[in-house]
Design a protein around this nucleic acid. Structure first.
Lengths: 154, 154
DNA sequence: GTCCGTTTACTCGGATAGTCGCTGTCCGAGTTGTTAGGG
DNA sequence: CCCTAACAACTCGGACAGCGACTATCCGAGTAAACGGAC
């Protein structure tokens, strides 16, 4: 189990974009340079976020990215699902219905306890990520960093 | 983000081993056949679980596996960490200290808000998995299955 | 009949190839600002 | 001087290689039981 680094990149970029004035776009190369990231690869994740509606991409000269909606309405979970995809991390293979000890389908109408336990843990994980928004991340920036980054994206 | 199928295999096998009488070992090929799994690959996960103390391996003829301790004292999280390893799923790369917008190390003594949020979600996930034990999984087996599987492993 | 040593067969353990998804990169489609020409 | 139309440059979007981790497998080390022989 591992979370791709694209999630971290996307969250940092979203936090930075939240400091820009409304209707102000930031170019991709500026985001990449600010965090020392490979621009071409960062593009892949920003695309995914734009497809999910978390970001809004503006093409052409004077183009760039801005948040898809207000920062307080974008949760960390939204960014994670946009980058990683929303496929559940645990895929039950129903091995209880395979092999010599296979159970008849009649007794497998309900998900097995293992599946239920894993799903409950996943729900807890997502619920935790849902309680934090991009606006909260901005509020927790160290003193002075917010003002400095606001000037950079203006 | 994806959880390896070995976790599911390990949990099912542990649930089955919990039905065996104390000090009774079950051979590896019987576990594999019961769930229709490739024995050689299942061995890799059982090894990992034995190394973590979740299972106890008995070599030689009449050998096999049994639980490392009573089922009520083995949590689902123990099995997950034994199979997947205990490396945290989110590795902060501290990109805030890289690139043109790099922050001085003085302002990075505390983990960033993103890191803290991810860690909190991971803690919630683990806490959820810690509340369920192998004994609980056994208790939630469908009616009749427990008795049938008890006969198989006896 | 009992004890001991050897043999034997069976079990788990670590080392070895194959495959899928994340990582990293490139070039093309689309759009806007510019600029030159004409009225 | 103003309008129009073509041009050009810049931006994002999707398609193309590289690498690490999970998947799958094999053979060797170790052990307990069984068997045969000696006492």
């Amino acid at each position: 189990m591992k979370i791709s680094q694209g999630v971290e990149w996307g969250l940092h970029c979203a936090t930075l974009l939240a400091l820009a004035p409304p209707d102000r776009v930031v170019r991709r190369d500026r985001l990449a340079a600010h965090y020392g990231l490979p621009e071409a690869y960062l593009a892949k994740h920003l695309q995914a976020m734009a497809r999910a509606g978390v970001l809004h991409a503006v093409p052409g000269p004077r183009g760039g990215y801005r948040l898809g909606r207000e920062a307080a309405r974008i949760t960390v979970l939204d960014v994670v699902e946009a980058v990683e995809g929303s496929t559940p991390p645990f895929l039950c293979q129903e091995i209880r219905q395979r092999g010599t000890g296979a159970l008849p389908p009649d007794q497998c109408r309900r998900p097995c306890a293992i599946h239920a336990t894993m799903t409950a843990a996943d729900q807890a994980w997502r619920a935790s990520l849902r309680t934090v928004t991009i606006a909260d991340l901005v509020a927790r920036l160290p003193a002075g960093v917010r003002e400095r980054n606001e000037k950079i994206v203006s």
